[in-house]
Design a binder for these strands. Sequence first.
DNA 1: CTGAAAGCGCTTACAG
DNA 2: CTGAAAGCGCTTACAG
Lengths: 330, 330
Amino acid sequence: MEDVAKAAAVSTATVSRVLNSPELVAPETAARVQRAIQDLGYRPNVFAQGLMTRKSRLLGIALPDIHGEFYSELLRGADAEARRQGYHLLISSEARDDESGLIGSAAGFVAGVAVMLTEPNEALWKQIREASEPFVVIDSDIGAAGVDRVLVDNAIGTRDAVDHLLGSVKPERCYFVGGPRENFDTEQRARVFADTLSERGHRPDERHVRFGDYSVDWGHRCGGEILAAANGEPIGVLAGNDEIAFGVMLAAADRGLNVPGKVRIIGFDDTRLATLLRPGLTTVRVPMAQVGAAAIAALIARIDEPGRPASCTRLPTELVVRGTSAPAKP
Amino acid sequence: MEDVAKAAAVSTATVSRVLNSPELVAPETAARVQRAIQDLGYRPNVFAQGLMTRKSRLLGIALPDIHGEFYSELLRGADAEARRQGYHLLISSEARDDESGLIGSAAGFVAGVAVMLTEPNEALWKQIREASEPFVVIDSDIGAAGVDRVLVDNAIGTRDAVDHLLGSVKPERCYFVGGPRENFDTEQRARVFADTLSERGHRPDERHVRFGDYSVDWGHRCGGEILAAANGEPIGVLAGNDEIAFGVMLAAADRGLNVPGKVRIIGFDDTRLATLLRPGLTTVRVPMAQVGAAAIAALIARIDEPGRPASCTRLPTELVVRGTSAPAKP
DNA sequence: CTGAAAGCGCTTACAG
DNA sequence: CTGAAAGCGCTTACAG
């Protein structure tokens, strides 16, 4: 920096101003300094900057140990947005392990952090509320006392999926096979599933709304039970994610039941798996990359303007019709 | 820090020494300082530290825009190792885009960076050689003038896979359907495939060793061509990755050819897909999490001891037999 | 074994 | 609009 100042025949203060508040510098001076910066390939020292300004261009992102594909999509979106705004992304996959995970170890390190919270976690929420740096929470709909949040709007996609199913299946022959009961997304999907059916005059009971985990195995098992009890007319299954949906497809195959002929299946997430399966899996797309980008955008917005009211971004989900479901109006 | 010094009735220099070179401090003094640190919840300022020492506990990792699952597995391994050694991981998914990607933007920021390089990239290599911070290269077998590398040893798994195929298929009826020709892994897998067959007295020609891309589509297409030409006895296919293998399975299904009865198929990577398919996909497991961990370990080793000779870690691959291949000795 | 002091490279009131 | 100067919180020779 000293060299730049010398080369441009100004003080280091001016160089600093050119970089941080160009409006305070006379245009000609600024130009001269810019040129010197170019010529000398000067890059400000991040540590010195951080030491003075008390804030870095570093953002943390903490994810639970979720399905690989989700993870990487979200990260990709987050990274792209961070980069676009001149920030770097620090990752941590231990949102679940150690409570003090990223939050503790990156304290005072990072200008803010985005945490994904898929299940209730009071301990973590407490830390978030007490933390000194800005936080944004992904996927958690609760405990939102003034904390920025980014959510997936499961309602749209779920409603469309149920309507789609009802185009060719009776309400009483529709099932929801979800992930863990505590999982925010599964919970919301289950609720909207039940509500939508209710509006059609059929309130599903607990045999029709099932909870388990996000695995092929669970889908296979639960699908098997459902199919064993259901004979005759076609049934419809909305799964909590694509893997569960695939499990249900397997259960149908076990019984020689044609999909979509006898069983109409809809997944959730629109992962790669959905496009690979034959027939292709009808599913509800969740825009994970956008979720990541939105979280980072919200975080930076808060850093830039700490006083702003807490935001809540809701990203829409969308039904993607492929081969495992019948057309809406047969 | 000043407060800690005061509380422990020592100078800040001593506090610093307790933290960085405890062996230089008298045990009792050290204990006193430690206690003060505890009591006050003191955490050193990372920026001030970085400003003095010229190095951070930050490591960069740059990955090409590869398949989600790979990406996240590698990252998980890398993150775990970094954390274990008290480092943080900064990610960048743009190893491919902008040449100056992570390398430029994180310069002087990060104590070292791990880059994954799956194809020749002279421009990137040049930057790596000229960079001031330590680098370790993942997956690239070339241009290794004194640079630490972490590689996957494709030879073991490929050889085992071919042997496995040859247990029930004639050498002249074995095919390799690879990814991109320039891809280091595909190239090595193809070479070992050809060599192993040659040792068995049959040197395969270009009809038996094919290159395309890492997609289901390519596997489907290429598998279709191969199966169209091959009738009668069973054939064996080693695919460049699991998705290609799945494409070949699809091609077999198109023609009503039983797998593994008429077509024996082996994939590569052992992704989640391999376990989801029916029949389960026989495949060669690539330990991605370990690759990530090894890269970080090598990077830290170099940071700690800049003079050490360049290391080259080779992680073994392993054949995992599932349903798409016949038993070795029928 | 410990302390006083200089300095890392920046930013930012404070004067002018 | 610009510069001199203080200071951010640490580390590290240098003395003792």
